[in-house]
Design a binder for these strands. Structure first.
Lengths: 211, 211
DNA sequence: ATATGTTTCGAACGCATGTTAGATTTTAGA
DNA sequence: TCTAAAATCTAACATGCGTTCGAAACATAT
């Protein structure tokens, strides 16, 4: 009994992996069930033993991707060394998000890449997980601001959007090996906290004007 | 003669507008020539009097979108008041990019949204314009860094990517009316130059540690 | 070894799409 | 008004897609 279920579950997982990978590469509409089936060593018709439709398959890929990054960031907050500052907390969250997105997780990267172009009803059903993840970040930032680790004169909602943009866009250009994920997280937090401008304590001359 | 050409050009423009709008909304593969034709008050077959194929139509939409944002940022640099600092220059570039992306320009936003999921040969032919635009930003940032307006210990390439991400991602969430584009540009540059962390001159107690 | 349930195959269907080409309408100049 | 070119329509095509379903292959327990 246990092995029968496991056989089916193995196939399911193989299909989902293939779907996530292909969705991520080509987008949803451009991806064919034939391609997914081939990548999963099956025939297209066989997919329907495990999934009711292409939309259903998409839905599960999206959900898994969002759940993974959510859990990764959540765990990053729980496993912090005691006495960590809010900067440390945010830095850990940034690294967890980036790592999930860029390190072998086709589900999360597929989610980020294709979310903008999926059927409306799928989006409507998936949006809850997205909102929950946004809420997780909101809480992290609000706590930091209330503890005076962040300026009080900034719109946290806007900062969150810009931060998410910088993080998520990496899926469009990142190539493993060129820059380490840690380096990216460092730069990200440097930008976020201290900025990359020079403090220019001697702001007197016209050094900064255009030559 | 002049009016005949103009008639054809008007239709061409109407088709391109419709294509950009629909591509932006639904993505490339999910967009039907029937939809584009209907939005342009034509029949699907009539499109072929103006364009050789769906790919060709896509190609032109992408090119126009990239050229527009390129020109907008270029002009923002030329029309700066004399004596502007490098911060001002970068701020102007950010605002120009955002304005083009978010203000009624379906071409640029279509380009940003769907670039990741287009046929390979179209991408190969379009990549030059993308590179040219990246080079424009690179020059702006390098000049700023050489003039000591930016730290010297940062990877400008990485900063450019993160900055582009924060900017481009806005197309996924921005809603006119909620936040003005100017406000966004301000926050963007605040983050970029000064950061949103508190300088904490009195770094003594454990205020920042987790409660 | 047989029987039962599980998983996959293979072929087919209906439908929508990109594309084509000839007929038709519209436009502009003589 | 007549005509030729330009622009659009209309209907059809080939193709590829998501999906269905009965048959085949496989696995498991008696």
């Amino acid at each position: 009994m246990t092995t029968e279920q496991s056989k089916s579950e193995i196939s399911r997982a193989r299909i989902l992996d293939a779907a996530a990978k292909t969705f991520r590469q080509k987008g949803y509409a451009a991806t064919t069930l034939i391609e997914i089936a081939r990548a999963a060593d099956m025939q297209a018709g066989s997919l329907y033993y495990h999934f009711g439709s292409k939309d259903e398959l998409l839905e599960e890929v999206l959900d898994i991707g969002m759940r993974r990054v959510h859990e990764a960031v959540e765990e990053s907050q729980e496993h912090l060394p005691p006495g960590s500052s809010h900067r440390d907390r945010i830095r850990a969250a940034v690294e967890a998000h980036l790592t999930t997105l860029l390190k072998l997780d086709d589900y999360t990267s597929a989610n980020i890449r294709i979310f903008g172009q999926i059927p409306e009803d799928v989006r409507r059903r998936h949006i809850r997980l997205r909102d929950a993840y946004a809420e997780l970040w909101r809480r992290i930032l609000v706590k930091a601001q209330k503890s005076r680790a962040l300026r009080s004169d900034i719109d946290l909602g806007l900062v969150r959007m810009l931060l998410m943009g910088a993080l998520n866009w990496s899926v469009e250009w990142y190539q493993p090996g060129r820059t380490s994920i840690q380096t990216m997280a460092d730069h990200m937090c440097l930008m976020l906290f201290s900025g990359i401008g020079i403090d220019e304590p001697a702001r007197s001359s016209e050094d900064e004007t255009v030559a």
